[in-house]
Design a binder for these strands. Structure first.
Lengths: 301, 301
DNA sequence: TAAGGTTACGGCGATCGTAACGATC
DNA sequence: GATCGTTACGATCGCCGTAACCTTA
């Protein structure tokens, strides 16, 4: 057993058990990885993969168990490298952030700007995905830190930190009937609604609020990001239900935003990362910066 | 980075950072490990060991962090091998049990006999140590399963299972004044006491019982095992406070045992093993056997 | 001077690449 | 015939062992 065999198994998973692609990723010829796999299976005494003809089509039960350990080894290997790199120079490196459009546009700019001033040598990569993909990004080592509102919890391999709480707001063109008077679920439900797609940005809280009131929403647009919603609100298509922080008092002067904290349960945005994954010092400072920004935001509102 | 370098680091810890001894353990010449260590440190960019002259004297802060990951890799490597071996033949292998004299002599014989009938191909190794060493044995991979009464808990890397509960008993020669009448802490404390060493077999429960009663025990013998205690009780040196199950109605006919469950809090014997450590099927069956024996014992009493 | 560690160098073997072949869609 | 995997074989590079040397208790 050696580390390149372990690496091979990891890459094989990534490539859908394709030896040729795995060879390419590892910068060796295909015959080499073929033989390494044979040697490893021989050493263990039984096959790790189900084969159909010569093709690898699935993991054997043994293979599945072994894969868990392979992940552990791979994680530890990455950690050693990260720890050493961090120790050599804790001002340079990379952070991969996975997050959603709303966070990327309305929350992250401030903390990221401040972080970049302190750590100009750290490259920040942002991956923007759907909330349900965020955690997967962590597990696949495509992201170090995920910032998300829905779908976290109950993952023993994850550490999650409370970041900040926010409420939804209703946005509408100036002069709309809902600009005046007390807002209620009933009044809102009387208009066509534009809001987030399922699983995005607290959508589930919107659902639960109106379901509790026994109301059916007429959702005529479900978008992944706020800008699309605002665009169609401007066209007079209906009421937009968006995250409160996504209303920009300056850029959105032509729209009216009304707080819905009394109608829709608060949403909680969290920071998540893998428990087993070593985060360099600067990443920890990045998280600190997020928490500072979160605190500022809560004091503001 | 490769697995033998990782292995080297592990062995270096075992040998007290002695390169020569590490080389010997790894069946290679000393110069080889010296160079491998250099290469690895070079790859990481900074030293893993503090050196005094040429000698390795301590881990650097980097080294300490790296060592944690090294342990993880080593554990995963062992797991892969164990899983594969288990998959090939789940009826052969080894179990290393770490336990104390009392468990080894008075509890384990029955479950081990039954287990051996079912799994004649499994070699059972027993390491008998002091309770405080038991957990260390697990961490050092010198034992797979620890069976112990004191000093477990609050170790996140451990899984502990409740095994059985038992009480202490007082043993004395026939005809001793304490053979008759109600037993109390006061009556016991009036005699010289022979019992377990600190940290052994529920000794702490004995302490707390008498401390609660405001009594000082005159402990004239503190032994690690029950047989020594019984031997000196037979010589008339005093009252023996031993684990109830350590009294053998047949072999100890010349002694009188009196239950102390109303005076001394119950002791709990637990099974512990490393969370990260893969236990072969037969080991899991061995634990089942322990639990069966534990149940039988509690029904008896 | 014994024990622990480093450096230099030659030899051997593990692993790679080339290449030809086999199978499956 | 294109994709995917295996087998055979020569070449190379990494790693080991020998051996001489350095350093400190």
């Amino acid at each position: 057993m050696n580390l390149s065999q372990i690496e091979l198994l990891r890459v094989l998973q990534e490539t859908g058990l394709n030896l040729s692609k795995a060879a390419e990723k590892m910068h060796v010829v295909q015959s080499a990885v073929s033989r390494q796999l044979q040697l490893f299976e021989e050493e263990l005494g039984s096959p790790l993969f189900e084969r159909k003809g010569k093709k690898l089509v699935a993991l054997t039960p043994l293979g599945q168990r072994v894969m868990d350990e392979v992940s552990a080894i791979n994680q530890a290997k990455l950690n050693i490298q990260a720890i050493a790199a961090d120790y050599l120079d804790s001002n340079h490196g990379t952070i991969h952030i996975a997050t959603t459009h709303t966070q990327a546009k309305y929350f992250l700019p401030a903390p990221i700007r401040r972080f970049r001033e302190k750590y100009p040598g750290v490259r920040i990569y942002m991956v923007q995905t759907s909330p349900e993909q965020l955690i997967a990004q962590l597990h696949e080592h495509k992201a170090d830190i995920a910032i998300c509102t829905e779908k976290v919890e109950d993952d023993a391999e994850l550490i999650t930190q409370h970041c900040y709480e926010w409420h939804h707001a209703a946005v509408m063109p100036k002069g709309h009937p809902l600009c005046e008077g007390e807002l209620s679920c009933e009044r809102l439900a009387a208009f066509p609604i534009l809001t987030y797609s399922f699983g995005f940005t607290g959508r589930s809280n919107i659902e639960s609020a109106f379901k509790a009131a026994g109301l059916e929403l007429d959702i005529i647009l479900a978008a992944a990001d706020t800008d699309v919603i605002k665009t169609y609100v401007r066209l007079g298509m209906g009421i937009g239900l968006i995250a409160g922080m996504a209303y920009d008092a300056f850029a959105d002067q032509d729209l009216v935003a009304r707080d819905l904290s009394h109608l829709i349960p608060r949403s909680i945005t969290k920071i998540a990362y893998l428990k087993q994954n070593y985060l360099p010092l600067y990443s920890q400072h990045f998280i600190d910066e997020l928490l500072v920004a979160a605190k500022e935001r809560t004091q503001l509102s």
